[in-house]
């Protein structure tokens, strides 16, 4: 995959300044590559215009799968393959199946959702992330602007926009 290598970075100290800055930068026509923050900043995804995550839907579907699998498993084992009368109960005592069904629903919903999260966010133990600025996992918010993606706007102009939006530093960053 061809990846862009030249970026301009705006470094911000404060989350509220950052959120205003995102709006200002987007209004000025500059496209933001991504914003990197040391902690979850509430409302940042809204000003960046990200669509709501569909992970809850994934969790629901995996949960339903868990419910179906658990019920099928218990019915096949208890009522179909080797039916036995235990404590005078029915061969298919559905109320007795509730606990295991519930547990497997939760198990599959959690693992399925987390799996989808890992894949969609490209999280893996051998992952080599591109770190724009080491301080972005410590105390600074980093806004990355892809130069190639903003070819119509001059570099100096982009820097000016970042500076006026409240960035404490504006740097260039190139990857190999």
């Amino acid at each position: 995959m061809e990846r862009d290598t030249n970026f301009i970075l705006g470094i911000y100290d404060d989350e509220d300044v950052l959120k205003d800055a995102v709006t200002k930068v987007r209004d000025s026509g500059v496209k933001i590559h991504e914003v990197y923050t040391p902690y979850p900043v509430h409302g940042l995804e809204d000003v960046l215009g990200y669509r709501r995550s569909r992970l809850p839907i994934a969790a629901f579907l995996f949960g339903m799968l868990g419910t179906c699998l658990a019920l099928t498993m218990q019915l096949l084992m208890m009522a179909v393959d080797w039916p036995m009368i235990i404590g005078g109960k029915d061969h298919a005592p559905i109320p007795d199946f509730i606990p295991v069904t519930f547990e497997l629903t939760v198990l599959l919903a959690s693992f399925g959702m987390v799996g989808v999260f890992m894949i969609s966010s490209n999280l893996k133990p051998w992952g080599q992330p591109r770190i724009f600025d080491l301080r972005s996992t410590d105390d600074k918010h980093v806004m990355a602007i892809d130069i190639a993606n903003n070819a119509s706007i001059e570099e100096a102009k982009i820097k000016e926009v970042l500076q006026s939006s409240g960035a404490s530093e504006v740097n260039n960053k190139s990857f190999e």
Binding site: E34, Y36, T37, S53, L55, V114, N122
Partner: peptide, 30 residues
């Protein structure tokens, strides 16, 4: 390796928050 290549992107944080909330919702009845 333990950090799974985490980069703190706003999009990942958004998903992270979503995952945390749903996991909390599942872990409570659990």
């Amino acid at each position: 390796a333990l950090s799974f290549g985490w980069d703190g992107a706003a999009k990942t944080w958004m998903r992270y928050e979503s995952v945390s909330l749903i996991l909390a919702g599942l872990a409570t009845p659990l």
